[in-house]
Design a protein around this nucleic acid. Structure first.
Length: 588
DNA sequence: TTAGGGTTAG
């Protein structure tokens, strides 16, 4: 390919003007073909247009742009800038930065467009060191006078948490500032939860736009949970846009105020998929998966196309409810509507299938994943563990080791839980001991909890007690509770009483704890103990927590509450129970 | 001679 200046003829070339209007992949393919046939592609300007069109198009991946890019012998700055921008858009800041380094190596001159892009890439990959080097380069080449570049620098420092460096640039009076400079700086403070600083700048700034307001609402609502100030901002905002409504609703949802969130959601002038996602996720997190699913169904009915995020919320609601049919329905819906099943959605599906007990589906999904992150592995290991497939969980853990996949503390909670459910005491102990030495992960309270559970279930009660008493941090009620349960299984009254005593000291002796203790006494025929506990519970007016369960009935979710006979006529219910009991007896 | 920087959800 040769480099040639664009002739007047080329500028007017209908193919190139058409390219700017192209949005679909097939349109771009067609023009690409014609550019090759006519050899117009050998012109750098024409190739730039093609790259720009493919980067802008939603239908094409960066792979396609890369394909065109690699065929250009001497890419100019424009082409490189467009590629860097494309990489940022598809959240691949590392490739963006690599291309910048490549430009340096090849001697492609950076211009005032290159720096804002590549600085954003540095901010996104938290590459402070790289950002600093570029800052030096910018100063050396005199680009710090460019407002876009300066704002790029401020943004980069803010993203990397260096608000002080950013502020120095911001406060430098010898250069002009604009609304974006102010907003970038405020955003930096908001990210770090420094709402006082953010507020001061907000009050000082000469003009504000919807960005400024939305950031403050988000900062107060989500970052620091100060819902009162967030609402004040929202109420004072001159012209609310969709984003500010979403931010405010998200703020409420974040602090668990779902009633207030729902009220705003109902009153908002227009909704998008994000508004629905916030509510679905909010309900799912707030322990109301039933309502999360209702909203998801409503969203589909009302014609808002769910995206990946809203689907993940709904899938996790299904997982909480064990609503396998609806989970499958969402899975099919996503495939039918060509919504990409990325690693997050796939992981949510694996988790859902696991929690619903469909292990084969979960395995199939996991095995077919082209990309896995640490969460995907964790979900699989935990799922196998709690479903009693401890050995398989250990195999996966070994596979992770072999593939040198990054592990985190949840991985160890998963694998230790798996060992404990499967009675793999020696394996569990070995893994626990290797946490610090081999993986540099400091065992937390939860890991000690797993260890106590592992030993307790295996009947090694003294060793479990020893762990609790010698561990480096203060044991919590879950640990003593776990030991108490183990004492019940292995009939150890003395240690059970010690555990109960410790739980009482921690003021965590709720009704559940006493019910277990009472059962232990009863199983040993210690009726004096049973009476003592019963009296204690009555004196303290302790109530047993109401038992609840949910099942799927004809595509809906039904909740059953212990003692509430309103669902079925009593006779019918008794009939079902007795036939189920018979089936179970026959099965055994 | 094509383009640019600052908000929202896992």
């Amino acid at each position: 390919m040769t480099r040639s200046p664009p002739s007047k003829l080329l500028l007017k070339n209908p193919l190139l003007s058409l390219l700017q209007k192209c949005r679909t992949a097939s349109q771009i393919f067609q023009i690409h073909g014609q550019l090759i046939t006519t050899n117009i592609i050998s012109n750098t300007f024409a190739a730039s247009r093609l790259i720009a069109a493919s980067v802008v198009s939603d239908a094409l991946t960066m792979d396609y742009a890369e394909l065109v890019f690699t065929q250009i012998e001497q890419p100019n700055s424009f082409i490189c800038n467009t590629m860097i921008k494309g990489y940022i858009e598809v959240s691949n800041p590392h490739r963006a930065f690599n291309l910048y380094s490549w430009m340096q190596k090849k001697g492609v001159l950076m211009d005032n467009y290159t720096y804002p892009f590549v600085l954003k890439a540095c901010g996104l990959m938290l590459g402070l060191q790289e950002g600093r080097e570029i800052h030096g380069e910018v100063v050396k080449r005199g680009f710090e006078l460019d407002l876009f570049v300066r704002n790029g620098l401020i943004g980069m420092y803010c993203r990397c948490g260096e608000t002080i460096c950013a502020r120095t640039l911001f406060d430098d009076g010898s250069h002009q500032k604009d609304l974006v400079s102010w907003n970038s700086m405020i955003h930096g403070y908001v990210r770090g939860g420094e709402m006082g600083e953010a507020q001061m700048l907000f009050d000082e700034m000469p003009e504000r736009d919807v960005f400024s307001w939305a950031m403050m609402i988000d900062g107060y609502g989500k970052k620091v949970g100060d819902i009162v100030h967030a609402r004040e901002m929202f109420d004072n905002m001159p012209q609310r846009d969709l984003v500010s409504w979403n931010s405010m609703i998200d703020g409420y949802s974040n602090v668990g105020e779902m009633v207030a969130a729902r009220r705003l959601f109902a009153n908002m002038p227009e909704k998008n998929a994000i508004s629905w996602s916030i509510m679905i996720d909010g309900y799912a997190r707030d322990g109301n998966p039933k309502e999360a699913l209702n909203l998801f169904r409503q969203m589909v009915r009302q014609g808002t196309k769910p995206d990946k995020v809203s689907a993940v919320g709904a899938i996790s609601a299904c997982a909480q409810l064990g609503a396998i049919d609806q989970g499958k329905w969402i899975h099919i819906y996503l495939s039918k509507n060509r919504i990409t099943l990325d690693v997050v959605v796939q992981t949510a599906l694996v988790d859902m299938y696991m929690k619903c007990g469909s292990l084969d589906e979960a395995r199939k999904m996991f095995n077919n994943m082209s990309e896995r992150n640490v969460i995907s592995w964790n979900v699989m290991i935990v799922g196998l563990g709690v479903n009693g497939f401890g050995e398989e969980a250990l195999e996966l853990f070994a596979q992770m080791e072999m593939e040198e996949t990054l592990m985190d503390d949840l991985t160890f909670i998963g694998v230790l839980t798996a060992c404990s459910h499967a009675g793999l005491v020696i394996e569990g102990l070995q893994i626990f001991n290797r946490m610090r030495s081999d993986y540099r992960i400091e065992p937390k309270l939860e890991h000690y909890g797993c260890l106590v559970d592992l030993l307790g279930r295996a009947g090694k009660l003294d060793e479990a007690q020893n762990v609790i008493e010698t561990m480096p941090m203060k044991p919590n009620s879950a640990l003593w509770g776990s030991l108490l349960s183990a004492c019940r299984t292995h009939r150890n009254i003395t240690l059970a009483e010690v555990s109960l005593h410790r739980l009482a000291e921690l003021k965590e002796d709720d009704s559940g704890v006493y019910v277990i203790m009472s059962n232990i006494y009863a199983e040993e025929g210690r009726w004096d103990g049973v009476l003592w506990i019963r009296k204690l519970m009555t004196d303290r007016r302790m109530m047993k927590e109401t038992g609840r369960s949910v099942i799927e009935v004809d595509g809906g979710v039904e909740e059953f509450i212990n003692g509430d006979g309103s669902h079925f006529p009593r006779q019918e219910r008794d009939l079902v129970i007795s036939s189920l009991s018979k089936m179970m007896v026959t099965a055994i």
